[in-house]
């Protein structure tokens, strides 16, 4: 078993207008998906969840605030999974809710 990082990116989305029901459905999707990986005993550690707001530091000391309008896909969060190989890790990434939001999942092995 090796460790792989699943890194989620998705387009910036303003959730402030989302209805409570929408938010609840979205939370359920994520929790069910991560719960599914955890139920297979393949989740390592707790998911790293990132707050929406942040800053970006660029060369020359330029600091920009979020939202990161210029970034098509913002980094959402990441989890570490245990899998035999890259193919299995990729299989685990299927069903990730980021994909429903036109986002992507990057799968990268973690150096052990």
């Amino acid at each position: 078993m090796k460790d792989f990082a699943l890194i989620f990116r998705q387009p910036s989305y303003d959730y402030s207008n989302a209805s409570p029901q929408e938010m609840q459905d979205l939370t359920k999707k994520w929790q069910d998906w991560i719960g599914s990986i955890a139920a297979q005993g393949k989740l390592k550690g707790n998911p790293v969840r990132l707050v929406q707001e942040g800053k970006v530091l660029k060369a020359g000391g330029v600091v920009t605030d979020g939202p990161f309008v210029e970034i098509r896909e913002r980094l959402g969060s990441l989890i570490i999974v245990k899998a035999a190989d890259l193919d299995e890790a990729t299989t685990l990434a299927h069903g990730c809710p980021a994909l429903d939001a036109n986002g992507s999942v990057e799968i990268r092995q973690v150096f052990s």
Partner: peptide, 20 residues
């Protein structure tokens, strides 16, 4: 279901996986 999802994230066990 959500409680089991959370439980499995911090403490996997076959029993919790089945109950989930």
């Amino acid at each position: 279901l959500q409680l089991y999802n959370q439980l499995l994230c911090i403490n996997y066990s076959p029993g919790a996986a089945l109950n989930r």
